[in-house]
Nucleic acid binder design. Sequence first.
DNA 1: ATCTACTATATAAATTATTATATAGAATAC
DNA 2: GTATTCTATATAATAATTTATATAGTAGAT
Lengths: 185, 185
Amino acid sequence: MSLKHILLGVLQRPKSGYDVKQMFDHVFSNFWAAKLSQIYPQLKKLTDEGLLTVQETPSDKGPNKKIYQTTAAGKLALIAWLTDGPMIHTEKLAYLAQTYFLGSLDNDQQRLKFLQDLLMRMREWHQALVSIQVQTKLRYPNYPHDLSEEEFYPNLTLMLGVKKVGANVEWVEESIELLRARMNE
Amino acid sequence: MSLKHILLGVLQRPKSGYDVKQMFDHVFSNFWAAKLSQIYPQLKKLTDEGLLTVQETPSDKGPNKKIYQTTAAGKLALIAWLTDGPMIHTEKLAYLAQTYFLGSLDNDQQRLKFLQDLLMRMREWHQALVSIQVQTKLRYPNYPHDLSEEEFYPNLTLMLGVKKVGANVEWVEESIELLRARMNE
DNA sequence: ATCTACTATATAAATTATTATATAGAATAC
DNA sequence: GTATTCTATATAATAATTTATATAGTAGAT
C-alpha cells in the first residue's frame, strides 16, 4: 500500500524508474525497501490508473529513459494517504523475531555470534546516518531550525533514524553484556 | 519468509492457530504483524511440508481445536534461519514514509495534527510496553540478571521495544516543537 | 580489444500478505 | 431471550513482494 504513495510523493519531481531506485537505496532505505522488479510494474500500473504521466527521453548515458511525474489525481491520492492518519503497529523487524527465538540455538557461542554480527551491522548503519546528518549541518549553520521547507520533513526522518539506530546499538551492547554475565555463571 | 520461522519457533510448545494469533496480538506485536487469514494457510503449508504436526482435540469452549507442534525437521529450519545471521535493512515503517512527505499537505494545521496523532499513539504503545516490563520486574527481583533461560531472549526484545518506542516519543515531541517554532515565524 | 561497472528497463514465476467473507459453538451481559 | 463477544477454523479474491532472469547501451580500465 505504501510503495504506491511513496512513488506518488517522490515523483512530484520528475524522475526515471532508475532514479527512483537510487532514492530507495540511499534515502528511503531508512524506512522502506523496494526492488526494481517491484518499482517498474508499479510505475506502469500507476500510469495506467492516471496517477502518473510518462515521457520517454534520450539518456546521456545508456538506453532511453522514461520520465514519470505525479498527476493532479496522483497528488490527491497522496494527500488522502497523509490525512488518513499515521500508520503504526504494522512494523516487521525480522532481527527482533530472530532475537526472540535465540534460546533455540544449542550454545551460547552461536547466540553471542548473532549479537556481535548485529552490533557490527547496527554500528555501520548508525555511522552512515550520522554522516548524512553531518553533511546537512554543514549546509545549515543553525540546523535544524533553518532547514528549507523542502528539506524539513525529510530531515525529521533522518533525525529519528539516528536516534532509533543509536538506541539499537546501545541495546545490542547491553544484551551482549547480559549474555556474557550469564555465561560466566 | 519470517512468519514461517516465527511459527516454527513458537510451536516448539504445542498451540492452536487461535493461540498463535493471541501471541501475535499480545507479544509479537512489538516486531511482527500477522492476520489469521495468513496464519491458518501457513500452518497448513508447514504441516504439509513436514515441519509441523497437527492433532485435533475437543475444546472446552467453542469448536474443536487443531494443536500444532514443530517437528525435528521444523527445528532444523528454525536453527538454519537463526544461524544465517541477523536480517536487517528490510524494515518498512509506513509512518516514517508519511512523515517524509508531510510537506505535500497544504497547511501546517494538517501537518501538526498528523504529528499529534502520532505522539498520542506512540505514548500509548510505550505505556503498554512499560507495563509488561513492570510486571516482569515483579516476578524477578534482580531483573534482568535473574531471568529464566526461557524468558531471557523474549525479554531482550521487550527491552528494545521500550527503548525504541521511547525514542519515538521523544522524537515526535521534538518534531512538534520544531514545527511550532516554524509556524510562529 | 575485452572486461567490468554502471545506466536503464522489463517480465515470468513463485511466494507472501491483505481484505473480505463464511461458519458455528459457548459464554456473558442486558 | 437476544445481542454481543469470544473461541475456533477457514477460503476466495486480490494485492504486494521476492527471486530469477533478460536485454542493451555507455564509460573506463587493462
